[in-house]
């Protein structure tokens, strides 16, 4: 049940318990217990909403920043990652294999704020060697959802 439960709530975190139980063919109480367990174990980390900010009047700029760092003795990359992810404007930090070390996703209201963050805060950290900032121009698909496409049923209405 665990895997199927996760695949449902991953797509729809607003689904109510009763419906969830029906879809899984399980008892409500068992589903509730499983959900509580998944939350306690930190498997389910939150119930977020996917928003296309483009369609609002709120300005929002997203940047992906590649960061090269010197790992620190005894702590590897964890310490520097923590220094970075503690900034609330940082939305995601990943350790990456390949040409650079950390990938940082940053959301700000303006380009200026992003460049200020990179030059004032990120680049000045001791172990940061270099950064490369990429601004996102358009989001086509996010979290598995295609943003600008309405699904249309193009099937014939009745078929045998």
């Amino acid at each position: 049940m665990r895997e199927e439960l996760l695949s449902i709530v991953e797509k729809n975190s607003r689904i109510d318990l009763k419906e969830l139980a029906v879809l899984l063919g399980a008892e409500e109480i068992d589903v509730a217990n499983e959900l509580a367990k998944l939350e306690a174990e930190g498997v389910i980390c939150g119930y977020h909403t996917l928003i296309d900010w483009e369609k609002t009047s709120i300005e929002m700029v997203t940047a992906l920043i590649e960061v090269k760092v010197t790992p620190q003795r005894g702590q590897g990359f964890d310490h520097i990652a923590e220094r970075i992810y503690n900034y609330p404007e940082v939305k995601a930090v990943y350790l990456i294999s390949g040409g650079y070390d950390l990938l940082v996703t940053l959301e700000e209201k303006t380009l200026k704020e992003i460049s200020r963050f990179v030059s004032d805060k990120l680049s000045t950290l001791d172990s940061v060697l270099s950064t490369a900032t990429h601004f996102i121009l358009k989001k086509y698909k996010d979290h598995g959802t295609i943003l600008d496409k309405k699904h249309e049923d193009s099937r014939e209405v009745i078929t045998p």
């Binding site: 099937r155 014939e156 209405v157 009745i158 078929t159 045998p160």
Partner: peptide, 18 residues
């Protein structure tokens, strides 16, 4: 049946076999 449904604009179909 198909002919009747196709003429109706805002009908929902549960009649598809694919």
């Amino acid at each position: 049946f198909f002919d009747i449904v196709s003429e109706m604009k805002d009908a929902i179909s549960l009649g598809v076999g694919e």
